[in-house]
Simulated scan of single mutants.
Amino acid sequence: MNFSKEEYKARLNKVQNSMQEKGIELLISSDTANMNYLTGYDAWSFYYAQAVIVHVNADEPLCWVRKQDSGGAYIKTYLKNENILVYDEKYIHTWPVHPYDNLVEIIKERKWDKLTIGLEMDSHYFTAYCYEKMKQGLPNVKLKDSERLVNWARVVKSNAEIELMKSAAIISQKGMQTAIDVINLGVRQCDAVGEIQKALFYGTPEFGGEYSSIATLLPTGKGTSASHLTATQDKFVEGEATIIELSGVYQRYHCPMARTVLLGKPDQLKIDTMNKTNEALQAGIDAAKPGQTADDVAQAFWKILDKYGIEKTSRTGYSIGIGYPPDWGEHTLNISKGDMTILEPNVTFHMIAVMQFGGWGVEASEAIRITDKGCELFCNFSKDLQIK
């Protein structure tokens, strides 16, 4: 286990208090990051049905997984063995039979079939088929959206979580330095990413890395005007910029970082735009203090963009922590105008400034922790345009 039983108990209590506030008696959490947060469960089993079940009065959650994955639950979670529930292989890819048929039976057997049940309706791993099975199999329950209840419980980190994120940040820096070193004229993008991934997995002698929730993103040339492009076998060419967005990962905790590299002669327009981008990013960082809101940070950021006449319509940050594919964001606070979430000590977020102008773009980002008096950056790495 990465954390003490006391920390897991505190997390459970926080979630149960939120359940009471929302009138939820039983919570079905199918978000893999939430499952990890509540129990410690960690395996690449999220491609099929699994969940953590929380009764509002229970001393422990229940971890419900496929029989083939039950060994992972016994090894990885802090739960008593009787609180690990398994379903048989007969439910795997045998439609219309489905694992949620088994979950429905469990709920009936435990006399929970008249409760108000919270579902993570917008989780990546909760499908329309799962919902239909619950709705048809439990006609007397009240089904409602949990409104990311567990995700919101995760927003304020413990000091133990912060330490894991600091380790991830060191790995991020190693990965980014490798990226800057290996992105050269004539090198294939895929070869560069191979070296970056090697660095991210090797980590440090003290702590090795893990797979990231998002692939290393590497838009280059015209691709820098788009978001979330991955490497191809094309070679880097002179005069083109490349954006690198990656994250080191330690014990499933992420600290993302983005930087921009330019190959060839200095391009004053790109240099100036990068400087303006970083000025806006720094203004947001300076506004990130306990008691301020996400909106306050966003307003400070956009004030600089407005000064330079730069238009940006997408959000410029989001909460981070535990991550599983396909996303390292927590799906809670956004650094955007109108988000009135109050920043508290140990709130952590990725503030990402990407500027796109049709045929080109630049980007920089920082993983940030709110402290008692202000904020601190997880990484210490120049945001300037890297010219080679």
Rank of each mutant, 00 (worst) to 15 (best):
F378N: 02
C63I: 03
F349E: 06
L200V: 00
K388E: 12
L103W: 13
V156P: 00
F378T: 09
K67N: 12
M165K: 04
K135G: 00
T332S: 12
N57M: 07
E25Q: 10
R315L: 10
V182I: 13
E195K: 13
K90T: 15
S319Y: 12
A73K: 10
M134L: 14
A199C: 05
Y308V: 00
G321R: 10
K388R: 15
T94F: 11
Y87C: 08
T371H: 05
N334R: 11
E109A: 10
D339I: 06
E206A: 14
D327Q: 08
D88E: 15
K5P: 02
I92C: 02
Q189W: 01
A51E: 12
T220H: 02
G23P: 03
I352V: 14
S45W: 11
A49K: 02
L143W: 01
L333M: 15
K111N: 13
E279M: 08
V261R: 11
Y87E: 10
M121A: 10
E132H: 06
S167Y: 14
V249Y: 02
G264M: 04
L281M: 09
D327Y: 06
K142A: 06
M165S: 04
I107S: 01
L263R: 10
T313C: 02
Y48E: 12
A169Q: 09
S212W: 13
K373F: 14
N36A: 11
A192D: 04
Q16N: 02
D88C: 08
P205Y: 11
D191M: 08
Y37R: 05
N184P: 01
L305G: 05
Y308S: 04
P326T: 11
S70T: 15
L149K: 06
E376F: 13
V237H: 03
A169L: 08
Y253C: 03
K270I: 02
G40V: 11
Q136P: 00
S225Y: 02
D122G: 00
V187G: 02
V354G: 12
W152I: 08
I162M: 13
T94P: 00
P290E: 10
K76F: 15
E60V: 01
T204G: 04
P290R: 14
R110A: 10
A353R: 03
T316R: 11
E240G: 01
L217Q: 09
V65W: 03
F357Y: 15
Y324L: 11
A294C: 14
E376K: 14
V15P: 01
I304D: 03
A367V: 08
V15H: 02
N2E: 15
K222T: 04
G208I: 05
G359R: 09
A287F: 06
I53E: 06
Q173W: 03
K383W: 11
V54S: 01
Q197S: 09
G239K: 01
S158V: 01
H55T: 06
R11T: 02
K276A: 07
P219V: 00
D42V: 03
I243R: 02
N2K: 12
F3E: 06
E240N: 03
K337S: 07
M134Q: 05
Q136N: 13
G118K: 06
Q282A: 11
N81D: 15
E6W: 05
K235I: 15
M176H: 07
C375P: 00
R252P: 01
L385Y: 04
T230K: 07
R252H: 03
L218G: 01
N83T: 10
D42G: 01
F357L: 07
I170N: 03
R110H: 14
W95S: 09
